[in-house]
Design a protein around this nucleic acid. Structure first.
Lengths: 255, 255
DNA sequence: TCATGTGAATCCGTTCACAGCC
DNA sequence: GGCTGTGAACGGATTCACATGA
């Protein structure tokens, strides 16, 4: 199949999962992988893997599976990960500093090009290899380094203004860590990571968990797959219980 | 309407958005709010707001709207935010430290009960008000403080073992910041925040943006709503452009 | 008159199941 | 025989549009 179809957003959000699985497989020198195996690594089911991959093209071999290296390459190409994208982090508080030091970025296709903060007292501070620069230099840096992605780690009240500046400077994608709804032009892609919001969703589940509670005593294998809110089990040993274990598949969109 | 229906997961994920909008409205002493206004604050459409809220019960008044205080209370109750939930953070590296200092938790219904790290050299370090304690004390702390939610900010290789310990100690919800697929019993809710994955999704959009590129010159109002990947516009002023601006609505699940 | 609440219609993603090909 | 690729069936979420009731 050729690749003229538009790829659904949900599929795009899963490609990084397959990507990661394939990277792991490549490390173990696996040559081919079946949709079943890849599904397990990504925490989805095999039909979904096949459907998702079919949007990219026909890269599998019937009766055999997918060539690990080739599929990894195709997904990387589709995600635009064959090059390293420069990103800027705006707002160098606790979170910004943590992001600046996060190793996962460099190993997965991104490079922190600059750290920016409007607070004059932060100017010149070193964070790892980088020095904090004033936000006034934003446009200049974005253009000089062809920055593709802006990460907003400022307090909420500053987020919209920073987004405006990033967009004005030519950044086409924003990752917003502030609990704010950004207003941006249509061509700008935004993703939000709202930490408290995640906790609030978990709070709902905790609040509505099985009323017998986690302190009720059950034999280890009781939990009879009624979904995430089914019977409570408290394993005694550190290792996962034998019966009622499932890969965590809750993080739509984000994961 | 009574509330016997099961609330869809997508609706649950939006309740925190409404919650935040209502908190803002309450601050301005608004008495009532229409589905339209609340929709704007949350970045969704009015029909969705009404449908979502109808799952909770019949709290609106036809011809008038929703009472801000009452609706806020109902949503808080549904999310389990009428009490402060104690959480523990495991893994006090850059990210764990940032999370420990994140003000948004305490203001939105959560309290960091303890910081844990297996590295003996971290033991006793102070982070804000709290002292880093060894992971061996995990079970004890979880029980003593009735910890509901565990936040995993360890390196990937340690994440599963930490999750096992948290589950064994009785924690029912996990927020996983490591790029790992956790295997847990059915009754445990997991949400994942994968920073590099978010960037990879943005990378896709940047990579596939309109080929005319952000440097093509257009009159400001050109962008004719073809969705997020439509014609490129580069606003000149910091403020949002007049024509082609839309609230960012991309973060499913997570936002 | 006005905005909610909700069946009905629609859209979209998931899953099924099997034809097609190695 | 085995696994992919994909139409078709299914299910769930979104949107529509209007009856309902303040």
């Amino acid at each position: 199949m050729r690749t003229p179809r538009r790829i659904p957003e949900v599929t795009i959000a899963r490609l990084p999962l397959y990507h990661r699985g394939l990277v792991d497989l490549a490390k173990t020198h696996s040559v081919t992988v079946s949709s079943e195996e890849l599904a397990e690594l990504a925490g989805v089911n095999a039909a979904k893997v096949r459907k998702d991959l079919s949007y990219l093209g026909t890269y599998g071999t019937r009766g055999v599976g997918y060539d690990v290296d080739n599929l990894l390459h195709q997904i990387s190409r589709e995600l635009g990960l064959t090059q390293n994208w420069p990103v800027v982090i705006v707002g160098i508080g606790n979170l910004g500093r943590a992001l600046a030091g996060y190793g996962g970025f460099s190993t997965r296709g991104f490079e922190v090009a600059a750290l920016l903060d409007s607070d004059p007292s932060k100017r010149g501070q070193k964070v790892g290899e980088l020095v904090v620069r004033p936000t006034s230099e934003l446009a200049e840096i974005v253009k000089a380094r062809a920055v593709a992605i802006g990460i907003i780690a400022t307090p909420a009240p500053a987020a919209q203004a920073v987004a405006d500046q990033l967009v004005a400077a030519g950044v086409s994608s924003l990752l917003n860590f502030s609990p704010t709804l950004l207003v941006v032009p249509d061509h700008v892609a935004v993703r939000r990571v709202d930490l408290a919001l995640e906790l609030q969703i978990l709070s709902f589940h905790h609040h509505h968990r099985d009323p017998t509670g986690p302190d009720a005593e059950y034999p280890d294998e009781l939990s009879i797959g009624l979904g995430a809110l089914s019977a409570s089990v408290r394993p005694r040993r550190g290792a996962a219980t034998t019966g009622s274990v499932r890969p965590a598949t809750k993080c739509r969109g984000l994961a």
